[in-house]
Design a protein around this nucleic acid. Sequence first.
DNA 1: TCGGTTCAGTAAACCGGTTTACCGGATCGG
DNA 2: CCGATCCGGTAAACCGGTTTACTGAACCGA
Lengths: 350, 350
Amino acid sequence: MAARAGGARLKDVARSASVSVATVSRFLNGSLTLPSATVQRIERAVQMLDYRPNPHARRLSLGRADAIGLVLPDIANPFFAGLAAAVERAADAAGLELLLSATLNRAERELAYLERMRRQHMDGLIFVTNHGDPSPPGALGPGPLARAINAARGVVLVDEDVPGTAGGKVFADNEQGGELAGRHLLRTGHRDFAFLGGPADLMSGQERLAGFRRAIAAEPGARLLATLSGPYGMAHGRAAAAALLAMQPRPTAIFAASDEIALGALAVLKESGVEVPQAMSLIAFDDVGPLELIDPPLTAIRQPLEAIGRQAVEMLGAAAPATIRLPVTLTIRGSVVPPQTVRSATRRRI
Amino acid sequence: MAARAGGARLKDVARSASVSVATVSRFLNGSLTLPSATVQRIERAVQMLDYRPNPHARRLSLGRADAIGLVLPDIANPFFAGLAAAVERAADAAGLELLLSATLNRAERELAYLERMRRQHMDGLIFVTNHGDPSPPGALGPGPLARAINAARGVVLVDEDVPGTAGGKVFADNEQGGELAGRHLLRTGHRDFAFLGGPADLMSGQERLAGFRRAIAAEPGARLLATLSGPYGMAHGRAAAAALLAMQPRPTAIFAASDEIALGALAVLKESGVEVPQAMSLIAFDDVGPLELIDPPLTAIRQPLEAIGRQAVEMLGAAAPATIRLPVTLTIRGSVVPPQTVRSATRRRI
DNA sequence: TCGGTTCAGTAAACCGGTTTACCGGATCGG
DNA sequence: CCGATCCGGTAAACCGGTTTACTGAACCGA
């Protein structure tokens, strides 16, 4: 009667209901239908003893954890935080627990987590990384990270690709985003552009640039004056903006491959007395920070975080791995206005 | 030799090393020292079979999960995201896995997670909530949330208290923060204040107000013209700022109980043509968003997130529950300047 | 009345570790 | 030369579920 330390076990319920453990287990899992008298005895026993199954025993027996892992570079980063929130919601809806790990982009941590996944019996791993995966000098084929990802089964890559991996992948449609950004700037009247990209070896930035290029190429007279690669952070935005200011001719619009890069660039522009958007238009990518609070409110390409998280979780359950690209959208705020070139400034008022 | 689907078991290692499973287990866990010949056989077997222990079996056997839970209202919120990052780091350093759950501040979800914790054999739960816990009408004593927290053992409350709970608690020193904010504003020359608090029934806001009041009371002539409670969000900041603008006399400085409230207030002030900081000084609490990017960069009281996360994890291991308050700090940026009285305003236009 | 179904339920193996209690042989002290 | 101690292990119970294979009884149709 007295519950043991640690709670009642199935055995206790069975005894209290005067049936066997098998009966209780099968009944509770719905694999056995019983006459109502027995049902009542069992249910009373469960109630009285406040029984709940031991998850570890359950997992051991079932060989399945009903839990998934989420590995990302940094939870404190708003983009990843938003992604984590979306994944958490989707996991919760699917009845899965969520194990969270941050790698700080350090390869040895990533490998350690993958290794853990390999048998640690999470049922799947959503993996976000943020840096390249070069093969060691002299080695051929995929890099160590790609190998580890392939070795661990049930890994879904999100946001950023790792070349040479075979599993499921969920990305934003970066190229479409780049094109969207380019077209918006072109439509607004700009012709001279700069692209402030992410790390040169990452797919996301390359694709955003490709889309941007495609939009620009479609417009005669439009040109991309500069593309500056660097980390997805404010520091790179600052440095790149400083470089742009020294250029001649100077672009009239900047497409930044992340919110942070845009914010860094914006800070330098302001400090240098270049008014945004009057003297320089600016469009960002991601749109997760409270960009509407910035002065000026930043126009940006928005990643569909909620959908990305949902799809990633869904894909963990799927049989055949696939690559999904989710459409991004343009959020127009106040950081893009027509350029004030010397000529057009005169013509504009006709 | 061929590894079974699912990987080698202890039994396989034992067979391969020609010893018993008990020997391997005890050796691997360091509870048995062996002559080097045996050690080598075991280590070779482990290596060859790529053995790693099944964590569920381990947890079942040990009755311990080496995992902790983190429950918070919303991971996408920068404050909680920062807290999560700190907790994750501390957990990782302690060799603990981290289970993440978001409640969206809904009581039934909180209760569900606590219920899960109750036996779900995480070794502990770090619990952050953000709303009151009123007793149901007619009932006495602690509210349902407090009861559930007390029923689940091993819960550490972080950031916000739940009245009537007995376990460990880790909070920022809110009162000190309020006082710090007040003193900074007083030192800068302000005498007429408004406090934009959080929800009236939450400890954090009450304490911040209490400290603020204490600072003000210590200065003759200083007065708190208004305290406006509301949710910790931008909407409340906006509404409260609008109300302040209608006041006569109007305060010259605002202490907002969160970053978001401050940002909401700032937005309305700007829209209304009230220049910050010239016409209205503003100081925030939390200091997690990129407040230096706001225009003007916001002066704020900073919560020691890293330390809070570390202490919370540490307290889970501790025997006796305690309440810890961690000191906050003042980060001076650009949103607090001396007040422009009517006189000085007229003089300005000479 | 008898063979076949269905009903209600059970015994026992199994998941893969950890740990207690113990054991046989070698060594050592007296 | 004998008992004690140490060394190098092992057998088996246990953690708490799930599931397969099976059984005894009742019922049903012919």
